[in-house]
Design a protein around this nucleic acid. Structure first.
Lengths: 254, 254
DNA sequence: GTCCATCGGTCGACATTGTCGAACGCTTAC
DNA sequence: GTAAGCGTTCGACAATGTCGACCGATGGAC
């Protein structure tokens, strides 16, 4: 039994399919999308529904993701050591910088946001915990791509989409960006992912000096930049925060 | 095939086991806890790991929940219609009441928090989205138990633990609380779950007048009460919010 | 340093288990 | 009124996941 369990793989594919499709999906859609017989797909869905991983709309009969996923996903955050150690430091960074702070880890071909501190003003903001960011265009992603070999290979093998006209897509150019990132110890994203938005991020290392995540600030390019350059005090604050979290993880013994 | 898929049920039990145990679990622990052969447990865990639902600590070999759960759980929130409709109204409620606002739905034997607006001050607060609250002692839970038949049977069949000396546990007493809740149209929790904390909640109905969730404010008992009574303007604000969301869902056509 | 208990992981035979495709009510749309 | 589509059920088949013994590695106890 060197192979993986078939029914589990199919169930995971279903959950991912339901997560990708904007709205609810019908049984026939799901079965045909995955190349399964309707009876097979129904058996898996029925079990997933019984376990709370999917829910079914009573009237339309369509399926969507279930609440148990939210509960388990939150539990994942609770046991996340990096996140726990970073909580106070990211809070401080948000206060001192006046910008929103994101903490991200490598997940599949992107950056998974595991913590998000709102910009400390009264503006309405949406929580981005659990969201994914691209590896090649965001500051968090570049940091991971520069320091984590797995992230590096993921970003080189994957497609690098141009979100704005400033996005760096060509492989050689992007390698140059990573070299600069490693040389400077931080990465930046000035309108490479979203128009008008800039971000600065630095790597977090564990006690074995392995990169485990990245922390950074994100905000309007007018606030993060001054005279066309990223504000040095912001860069210093982000790097200080990353170092503090790394030290908290046991990396700083020297 | 009237029964559910065995391997999926076992995988779900593993995820729930990993979510329950405070820290990482070893393969042998998992196998013996579920009464499985080690080889079987390992096959399921390997597949779950490959799909990103569990992660394995490189050094200790122990297992914990995986990042994919966080991603899928967040996606669940994105497609949650009730939550989407409630976003602006809960924001307004938090501003007008000056207290934190929770939006909950029935899940298994408790209330799953699907939205949480922080109290609008600069105090440090922890996000409770994805957390569970008991049905019998919180305002959100009492509302659901009073209006949703499924929640009602869950709370009657389940154990009603006494969190404080004010918790109502006896079945007959609790039924009286639900009668009062239905008569008044809202529920309260004054130090029945946490010492010093009170909450007020009201039900949300969909277009078919079925209860689909509850919304409420939570805060220090000194702020929510005045002269030993819950502040009437807070009750009115909560009920207005619940009605507004219900109307947004299409319930208010008359 | 050595031993022993225990860990996570592998392997192959077995039969239990999930899969498939057809058929069933039922609703919806024309 | 009809027909097409939906989600669901069913039974036969064999592919599939399960089991328990076994393996090398690890880590305490002494």
């Amino acid at each position: 039994m060197a192979r993986n369990i078939q029914s589990l793989e199919r169930a995971a594919a279903m959950l991912r399919l339901l997560a990708g499709g904007e709205r609810r999906l019908g049984l026939s859609d799901i079965a045909s999308s995955l190349g399964l017989a309707k009876g097979t797909a129904h058996g898996i869905l029925r079990t997933l529904q019984h376990e709370g991983f999917v829910e079914q709309d009573d009237t339309s009969g369509r399926y969507q993701l279930g609440a148990e996923l939210l509960r388990l996903g939150t539990t994942y955050l609770d046991v996340h050591e990096l996140r726990a150690r970073a909580l106070v430091w990211t809070d401080d960074l948000a206060r001192s910088s006046g910008e929103s702070v994101h903490l991200g880890v490598l997940h599949q071909q992107g950056v998974l946001i595991v913590h998000h501190v709102f910009r400390p003003d009264d503006s309405r903001q949406v929580l981005e915990i659990g969201a994914m960011q691209p590896l090649h265009s965001t500051a968090l992603g570049k940091v991971l791509a520069a320091y984590d070999p797995v992230a590096h290979s993921e970003v080189l093998e994957g497609e690098r989409k141009a979100f704005t006209e400033r996005t760096v897509c060509a492989a050689t150019d992007f390698e140059g960006v990573l070299d600069i990132t490693r040389a400077r110890g931080y990465a930046a994203d000035v309108e490479e992912t979203w128009e008008g938005v800039a971000s600065i991020a630095a790597p977090i290392h564990d006690r074995r000096r392995m990169p485990v995540g990245a922390v950074g600030v994100t905000g309007a390019v007018e606030r993060l930049c001054r005279d066309g350059e990223l504000r040095p005090e912001l860069i210093a604050a982000v790097r200080d925060c990353a170092r503090a979290v790394s030290r908290d993880l046991g990396a700083g013994r020297f």
